[in-house]
Design a protein around this nucleic acid. Structure first.
Lengths: 185, 185
DNA sequence: CAGGTTTCGTATCGATCACTATGGATAATT
DNA sequence: AATTATCCATAGTGATCGATACGAAACCTG
């Protein structure tokens, strides 16, 4: 997973994987069928072990603004963990790919789209309970937040520290409309 | 340039380049020495022909806020030009790379760092003339703006339209502190 | 302890990578 | 017009890619 995270799908050779896992080629193929399946397993593992912060933030019983804040700060931390490759595997894994690896690139794109959709869902919920103003576009803002997270991923890859990413998250948060008073309260 | 832009440095094979340029391998090597040099030429050409908007925006005789607005809107347009690959070559070219191509990845990283530095320079100029409040951190905000542009590049690659990117740009701009009255005026 | 089976690592597969040597066609010179 | 020189595409170089055939070693059974 770390190799794919660091070098991307195509640039990670079986020789590197073999050495890292201490397995012989037949053992790898016996366990994972082929390189593509192994990568998908790595994606699943990454999803389960590295980015729980996202689901946590979006499902936390807090205001919409606070949920987005938790999401961005969680990303700042997750994208700059010591001993781990910088950024997000879903971004670094195959942003550009050869025609042969188009399926992999599309899969990663669908992960990113799913993240954006999850953000949009949380924003829609927020608008439903009056956390957000009337004219607020859920889709547009979700695209902004998802885009900022993608940008943080690249900044992390370029060496940004967790503090720098947190500041970027806080800055991005300033674009959110101010918390509204609930009319009923 | 388009091939590198679309598929990245390593995933673009000489066979693809040969077909696209209508040249034989020796002609390519006679003209460009090797693949790495050809890629660097493509980077230079990209810089000259595709992202003039950035220098234009940062050197325009307008307020700092307006300059950043022009920068982000220019990116929205440049990252989604019809008939061109989505996003920015400096991001897509080699976000992740094999150990052999580390030099290329580093070169692209330095391009991104240079962009961020250019933004920081413009912000510093803005603060010097009183466009920005006292406590404003030039470096942090430059990292935010550069990060947002990188994020726009990925959103563009994921199929975002120019309108969607413009909205993202406008949203990002809301994080900028409001234009200050010049004390002397 | 012998025989049969299964497991597993080495050595290699064909394909493709970036890259180049060489033979043939063309052009220039005597 | 004959000969030499120059160019240039084809064909192939070693290396590495993902993936596997095969022989040796180990193990369980009788």
């Amino acid at each position: 997973m770390h190799l794919f995270w660091e070098h991307g799908y195509e640039a990670t050779s079986l020789a590197m994987l073999r050495e890292a896992m201490g397995l012989t080629p037949p053992q790898i193929y016996n366990a994972f069928t082929d390189k593509e399946t192994l990568f998908r397993r790595a994606l699943t593992r990454y999803h389960e072990t590295e980015i729980g912060f996202a689901l946590d933030a979006l499902s936390a019983p807090v205001s919409t603004r606070e949920a987005i804040r938790l999401l961005l700060l969680g990303a700042a931390e997750a994208y700059s963990r010591p001993g781990k490759p910088g950024g997000c595997l879903f971004v670094s894994g195959a942003l550009a790919a050869s025609p042969q690896a188009q399926a992999i690139a599309d899969e990663l794109k669908s992960y990113r789209k799913a993240s954006e959709a999850a953000i949009a869902e949380r924003l829609a919920k927020g608008r439903a309970v009056g956390d957000l103003p009337e004219g607020f576009s859920v889709e547009s803002f979700a695209k902004y937040i998802a885009g900022v997270m993608n940008g943080m991923s690249i900044q992390a890859r370029d060496g940004a520290s967790v503090e720098e990413l947190r500041i970027m998250a806080q800055t991005a948060l300033a674009a959110l409309p101010p918390e509204e008073q609930k009319r009923g309260a």
